[in-house]
């Protein structure tokens, strides 16, 4: 399973942070990869609508998540605040991973 995660919007634009995060789940240690798979499953990700019906709130962010899992493949954009707790948890996890990747750079 491969995850691409992109963050857009927010109080200001930082060109350096626009770079998407790519996670190759198969390359992760098993517990981490299982955790991600569980979050994706709980969010029922492959059944989510591609575009949010949520309004564009000032300074709020939009998150685009693309997941390629062999036969299943989907790209979803969500705007915050995210109502669905399971999806919220998935985005929070990806956001944290993006921040860690940034710190490691």
């Amino acid at each position: 399973m491969r995850i691409d995660f992109r963050v857009e919007g927010g109080l200001a634009v930082f060109p350096g942070l626009a770079q998407p995060l790519t996670i190759d789940c198969d390359a992760l240690p098993r517990p981490e990869s299982e955790r991600l798979r569980a979050l994706v499953e709980r969010a029922d990700f492959f059944a989510l609508p591609a575009r949010p019906r949520a309004p564009r709130l000032p300074d709020a962010r939009a998150y685009t998540i693309a997941i390629d899992d062999g036969p299943q493949c989907r790209t979803v954009t969500v705007r915050e605040p995210i109502a669905d707790p399971a999806l919220r948890e998935l985005v929070a996890e990806l956001r944290e991973r993006a921040a860690s990747a940034r710190r490691a750079r």
């Binding site: 927010g10 309004p55 709130l57 000032p58 300074d59 709020a60 915050e80 929070a92 944290e96």
Partner: peptide
């Protein structure tokens, strides 16, 4: 949220 680096207006309140 956790370590959240943003602020926004949700139409009713500030976050």
């Amino acid at each position: 949220a956790s370590r959240y680096d943003n602020a926004f207006w949700n139409g009713r309140q500030m976050v």
